[in-house]
Design a binder for these strands. Structure first.
Lengths: 203, 203, 203, 203
DNA sequence: ATCTAAACGAGACGGTACGTCAGGTCTTGGT
DNA sequence: ACCAAGACCTGACGTACCGTCTCGTTTAGAT
């Protein structure tokens, strides 16, 4: 059965998402209340709760809508360059827009005390980005640059682990230099042969 | 002039810390209220606020007091084994005591929306652990196992980055296997020659 | 435009007023907390603060709602009897219902350290009762029982002054005897000549 | 056995009383805390609680110490003038010193929710003043100005009732005019023969 | 053209926890 | 034993958000 009643207002949906992201970036996610979002978006609170389960889900949704086209998935023929490019682009996207870093931190924070959101966040944000990196390693494997994909999850953990660690614990910047270093580290780790043997050509 | 007035009650301090950590572990950090901590510790809420600025600071303090003796700093003569031992011990300490993982997640989450706490957390929790790892690398350098310490911060980022990433994003377990793999990765990356072999050409 | 949003809940309003008065009478105004009123009325604390500024205003409101029909305004044709009847009825209403005296004392006490409440109390409680008495004197003046209304405020002060003084300083009972004596005092003072006679003997 | 240990410090006692009254007058009784009194008096809180049971008792004590000499007990040979003089002096004492009115209001308010203080207040403040007025009526009776003292308590209630009523309910000023009017009313009621006629027996 | 039903704005509702404040008690070292 | 200082426990406060619940209004497709 196709119909019944008034259809969802696209205008409301957009205004809520835009307002949520704007407020989260300018005033800090934690300082923004649902009442504010509703009020600033000219929407009723119920309208928000009808379509999203929590403030976190609204902001995450806004984040995804917003970031849909920002990240580049490079294909240069070199694992090191691919990884460096992808990480560089990822870091950039976060730093460029003021307050975006804060929003990401808040998303991860929120995931810590909301199991439902944690699942959504992992499935719709964390995993897709892991998948992208996995693709880069798979391509490199196909090219023969990488001997085995057995440890690909560990390599991904290293890349994103360092990123999130710096982001969350504020122990260092996310810049092109870091992207380069991580790319080098991972391309070596994934292509080297530890036992001092021939090691063969690395590049 | 040495003092004035009634001295701080050591009993209260201990009971508050113990109660805070116990409640946080058993019922989840977010579900514990200041009123509960005060009440269960037989303390007044004001007494808590007199010495700590927030629930997070209380729990962090309890965490430090508690963890003072838990972590082993190994010295086996081998960087790989030292790192593996340290990480293993760190992971264990988190998994062994029920609920400890949750508390750590909550601490990191809290640091995301409380600047004051973030600073305290980094200085009194994050950095000391980095320092330990730094010591292991410095020893290995002194032994000649590591060629240069230029990238030691990156290696530390890798170790803790992966740990926190798995902890927070729930993308994999923190077990002995991971400790071993990270140790291998880092000892290789840092230029180690496990068995005194030629190391061959690295680049 | 008549409205917008959910209308105020009459049920909540009533339950809050009833609960407030009941608790104040049974347990003593000072021993009742806002949390208790809210909790017992099945209301949120915010709902109380949304419509009243303080506990005192809630109780006063309840008092007015409750006392709307209790006081008799007599019209016997004799000033002395009118005043005696009115005061008697007023005293009775306070003594009959257990705890009511205490509530009145508390209201007056509250007015002493809350300017806003003092104004409300005077305008909505004190003055209406003065007005009633003023009416009795005005009627008597119209009948020729009272020579002039110049000092009517003083007479009113005397009646209520003695009442409140005994109530607050606990220096004597509020009973029918007092009502009679005050009525006599005031009818004499105001120049009444009960039976149109030469003023002569009073009783 | 007369003594033991350090004697009570007269300096402390005075400073506490002075500070309490000063603060109560300048900032309003309700806005003053025990901590403030102690701190401003350079005393410990315990020192206050050692000698007084509550803030109200401290202030009342200060009030009595302060007012010891202020009130005149006139003896002019005329009841009307005696009463007018006494009330006038009483009203003046309250109005002259800024904030004193407020303190009296607060005392009476405090008596409403502290039974112990109520007793102390009545016995040491209310009753002595009643007694003074009683003396005036007794003298007048001895002079033959007053026929009987049967209703002296009512007359006293009228005088102080109007005073407190105006003070507490803010329904009129306490000035010389009021003192005169009350004196007239009471002297008439207590012995006068309003119409020059026989007036006959009152009861 | 009317009917029906869901979505909409507004905003009041029941709750939970917060951080603060004051009261009155207790515990130091010092007089 | 008294004192100043100040930490202690207790308990109420008024505020801030949460997520839910009415209201009357709007907006489409189905009748």
């Amino acid at each position: 059965m196709p119909h019944a009643g008034r259809p969802r207002s696209e205008q409301s949906r957009c205004r809520i998402l835009q307002t949520a992201l704007r407020l989260a970036r300018t005033r800090g996610y934690a300082n923004v209340t649902m009442d504010e979002i509703a009020s600033e978006a000219g929407a009723g609170k119920q309208t928000i709760y009808r379509w999203w389960r929590s403030k976190a889900e609204v902001v995450l949704d806004a984040l995804r809508e917003n970031a849909r086209v920002e990240i580049v998935i490079p294909d240069t023929g070199s694992l090191r360059e691919d990884v460096a490019g992808f990480l560089s682009s990822t870091f950039d996207a976060q730093q460029r827009r003021t307050g975006m870093t804060r929003v990401l931190q808040a998303m991860m924070a929120e995931a810590q005390h909301d199991k439902d959101f944690a699942d959504l966040f992992r499935d719709s944000f964390i995993e897709p980005r892991r998948e992208t990196l996995r693709t880069l390693f798979a391509r490199a494997h196909a090219r023969g640059e990488v001997r085995t994909l057995d440890e690909v999850d560990l390599w991904i953990d290293v890349a994103f682990g360092v990123m999130w660690y710096r982001l969350l614990a504020d122990v260092g910047p996310l810049d092109a230099t870091l992207a380069e270093k991580l790319a080098s580290l991972l391309s070596e780790a994934s292509g080297a042969h530890p036992k001092g043997v021939t090691t063969a050509a690395k590049k």
